[in-house]
Amino acid sequence: MINQVLLVAYVLAIIVLSLRLRQGTLSGFVISDRNIMYPAVIGIAFTAAYFSAASFLGGGGYGLVCGFPWTIWAVFLHVFFACMAWLIAPRIWSMAKEYDARTVPQLLERRYKSPGGKVVLAVIMLIMYAIYLVAIYKGCAELFQGLLGVTYVQGLIIAVSIVAVYYVIGGLPAILWISFIQGILMLVGAVLLYGSLLQRGGGMQIWEHIPAAVTSMSGYMMPWEKSLGMAFSISLGLVALPDLLIMIFSARDRRVVRFAGIYGPISIAVYAFCIFSIGVLAYGAFTAEELAPFEKSPDSFIPFVATTLLPPGFDALILLAAISAAMSTISAIVLVTTTSLTSDILRFFRPAISDDRVLLLTRGLGVVLIGVSALLANDMPQGIVPLVSVSMGVIACCVFVPLIFGLYWNGGTGQGFVASLLASFISVVLWHFYSGSVIHPVFIGLICGTVAYVGVSLFTAAPGKEAKGTGHK
């Protein structure tokens, strides 16, 4: 009963907020007219949109299999990239404002004067985000199953309806404010889980019960290189994922972005530290027999901890936190994926189309995207499963190289931009499918993307002077 009441209160709060934050213009819907004036909202919404249910459930349970290398590298790299992302955020905001960019492909198009590059990036985002969306929906539906005792399909329908309502009504302003609230729920959930494990293990005594093999930096059941590669590829997204960058675009001025840089890294540090430690701490709080079933399915470990260690009612809070993690990510991804289709690809082929029509299409196609990905999540095509794990890494690689060079180097050209996109995309996919190496595809994608970008830029720069375009202050 308490679960149903919690869920109803949660949904009501979401609907009321969406209605209050409703926007009638394309700029309002897509980047909130650059009017968000609360650094805490942007900072914490950024964190919520970044961490999905996969991090909450998978990242939490993953330490069971990988041991200390996962905990140490995942926390370290998340905080490192979060700090880096927020230190360069004011420059990104200024560049977006100067070019009046509403989407990330548009920002890079104007930076490099390359409409073709914009379309290539938008197509890569469309494919990769759609694949990732299917995977998150699957997790979200399973969470509703756990929270409400409904079937998988019913869980899926509930998840789809809630996200569709606040996406269509509110756009980015609703996504930001709702993600802010969801982020706070996620932080409370993460701290509760960490605290409950410490308490069960006898405080600091917990470390005495954890086997040395689990705390060895050479890895437990997985080589440390694999944990490092995975942590790197996931956390790189903090600097370059378009669904996070649009949150920076939405700030009213540079000062708001600057101070969001306090809330963002702190919330990421607290969340990552609590969640990624759980798998290792579990060895000090539970017996080996209790943990054995979860070595095969680490995703179901967090719900087990919540129901075993927390008082009734609090376990529902944890599930709600996991659902929040999924929804905040889904909503931001639906927005950037749809705008890449309407604002970037459609506008490229039909430049005369009006803002009002693009807004209508962005709303409508968003719902279509939510519906189609939910249908695919209901019966996930086997072909896309191997791509899920690299989908975010591909997007992060493709955006990272032209974005960072575009901010700090004057020599980049439009051809260099397109070459880096293609090199990153093709090398990651090929390496992922054909190498079988312990080196993560994202490392390869970054190297190939950078070499292609710099090489082609130098080759195509006008003789006697550096390519046009300015580094940003």
């Binding site: 140490i72 700090c83 927020w86 230190l87 004011p90 600091m204 005495e208 705390t215 540079r254 306090i262």
Partner: peptide
């Protein structure tokens, strides 16, 4: 006893946050 890598992690996380905040708060040019 908290393992050394975990202690090192806590110290480095605090250091990274502190450096970021110092840079953030000292940017008076905006």
């Amino acid at each position: 006893m908290v393992p050394t890598p975990y202690l090192a992690l806590i110290v480095s996380v605090i250091a990274m946050l502190a450096i970021t905040f110092l840079i953030t708060l000292r940017r008076f040019d905006d």
